[in-house]
Amino acid sequence: MAEEDNTVREPLDLIRLSLDEKVYVKLKGERELRGKLHAYDQHLNIILGDVEETVTTVEIDEETFEEIIKTNKRMVPYLFVRGDGVILVSPPLRS
């Protein structure tokens, strides 16, 4: 019986150690999520709770050609995230 050990032997161990912790997830399409990690699998399909989604969009001002960066935020109670959109997962900073 494997004990619940705290060593990171393979990359997914890092995710395992973040269960029930707040994590940051970077997704394709300039999307970011912050929420509590409740479930994941080897594809990085994920269930998060109390999720804040941030979507960043860049628009070009038609006159000045300046980049206007907009961020849209929303809260979702529970969210299933399909793994193929995941770029990066980071546990909270343990300080």
Partner: peptide, 20 residues
């Protein structure tokens, strides 16, 4: 991309156990 889940149907403990 996402599925928004009904809050009443998320058993957090059960998910943790199944994930481990």
């Amino acid at each position: 991309r996402y599925v928004q889940l009904p809050p009443g149907s998320v058993d957090v403990e059960l998910l943790h156990d199944a994930t481990r």
